[in-house]
Write a protein that binds this DNA or RNA. Sequence first.
DNA 1: GTGTTGTTCAACCGCAAGGTTGAACGAGGA
DNA 2: TCCTCGTTCAACCTTGCGGTTGAACAACAC
Lengths: 117, 117
Amino acid sequence: MAADPLSRVFSALADPTRRDIVARLAVADATVNELAAPYDVTVQAVSKHLKVLEDAGLVSRSREAQRRPVHLEAEVFDLMTKWIERYRRQAEERYRRLDDVLRSMPDAPPAPGGDPS
Amino acid sequence: MAADPLSRVFSALADPTRRDIVARLAVADATVNELAAPYDVTVQAVSKHLKVLEDAGLVSRSREAQRRPVHLEAEVFDLMTKWIERYRRQAEERYRRLDDVLRSMPDAPPAPGGDPS
DNA sequence: GTGTTGTTCAACCGCAAGGTTGAACGAGGA
DNA sequence: TCCTCGTTCAACCTTGCGGTTGAACAACAC
């Protein structure tokens, strides 16, 4: 649990069960038992998954009588999207510039990866 | 390696070294040796990281004499951003609607979880 | 041919992740 | 009070991951 925030978020969403939990929490808050019902694993395993999601900041748990409803915190998604967008844009920018260079060459060879006819 | 594509991509980016490799490949293609230079791990370890990135579709390797330049494939990012945006939007939409409901109530009680005074 | 350079394969090690079972804890309800 | 329900803690098992070393392989240079 000493990893940086970005690693925690990516790692938390690397598990299909946890992604499914997030998907269901996007619809409505739910308790651990409700969340565990559809899966054929124990409630304890789901509780562990929720701890991972909580440590990643993706989820929060409040107290309501003896239940502990789980709530999705969507803000952390920004961490990822910002990281992704940064490098995607950078890569695409580089690709575009390479494309321009190739296009501006006197005897231009076909663009790499383009028009696979 | 039997995981679904989304799990592979998230899992690949959960490692800080691999994210750094992606960041550097966004600037320019590079060989395994070049990529390994800044880190204090062996070239073999970096080669393994690249295999993970390649299996996730984030990277491709061509052949150029005895070198194997590594190239960033930015398209796979869309997989993630689409997944993230879907549930982020859903969660925000739900939050907005809940907010509307609370605002439209005649004798509005304090929002659940809000104002813990 | 014989190196030399760049890369990958194979076997191993330590450790954390996801799963289990069993017990404990916290808050109501009888 | 005692019991039940929902949840978490503790101990354990197995698997996978990131790392290592050592050898193999591929494409050049001599």
